[in-house]
């Protein structure tokens, strides 16, 4: 994710209204739940910090990624699938660690992400890192360098189910 630190102003602008409102709602709800005190002063401070956070997020270019809103509906199904994947692979890794001979065969694999957007690649990389036994080491121009603990996990990565699921998440 090497990016030039100074971004042109055109990329910073064009905040989507629904995304801003959603962020404000999430921030306000978490403030109210966490503070638990409903005095005017504290509520005012909460409103101020919500607005400040939203403004800072806007300045950081958070709303530039319009894809973020589009992939919210498909997220639960994807998480459910990822959960099962994590469970299976963590049992494998636990077995590997506990075996006295430790039959590991570290492998580096290069994967190609199917989505062009940064958000899609970040989701793919994070999913790969999240499941034990595979770690994304480098992301560069749509190519991911993945370190796998065994050759089998490398092979199952190369069958491409993760990339397909992550790409589908973004498209519908």
């Amino acid at each position: 994710m090497t990016r030039s630190p100074v971004r042109p102003a055109s990329q910073r602008g064009e905040a989507r209204l629904p995304a801003v409102l959603l962020l404000l709602l999430v921030l306000a709800v978490s403030w109210v739940l966490w503070s638990g005190l409903y005095k005017p002063l504290l509520l005012g401070l909460g409103a101020f910090s919500c607005l400040l956070s939203a403004y800072l997020a806007h300045r950081m270019g958070f709303f530039r990624h319009q894809a973020l809103m589009a992939l919210l509906p498909g997220l639960p199904a994807y998480w459910w699938w990822l959960l099962r994947e994590i469970a299976v692979s963590s049992i494998e890794v636990a077995k590997l660690i506990l075996k006295p001979s430790m039959p590991i065969s570290p492998t580096m694999v290069e994967l190609k992400a199917q989505s062009d957007s940064e958000v899609g690649q970040v989701i793919l990389g994070n999913s790969i890192t999240l499941s034990p036994g595979t770690v994304t080491v480098d992301v560069h121009e749509g190519k991911l360098l993945v370190h796998c603990l065994t050759r089998d996990s490398a092979r199952s990565l190369q069958s491409g189910e993760v990339t397909r699921r992550a790409a589908r998440l973004e498209n519908n």
């Binding site: 890794v93 595979t134 770690v135």
Partner: peptide
Amino acid sequence: LPNFYTRIHAASLTDTM
């Protein structure tokens, strides 16, 4: 585990599962 890159996998086991 023998080296740094393999130790990451152990850390990710405790981190996620």
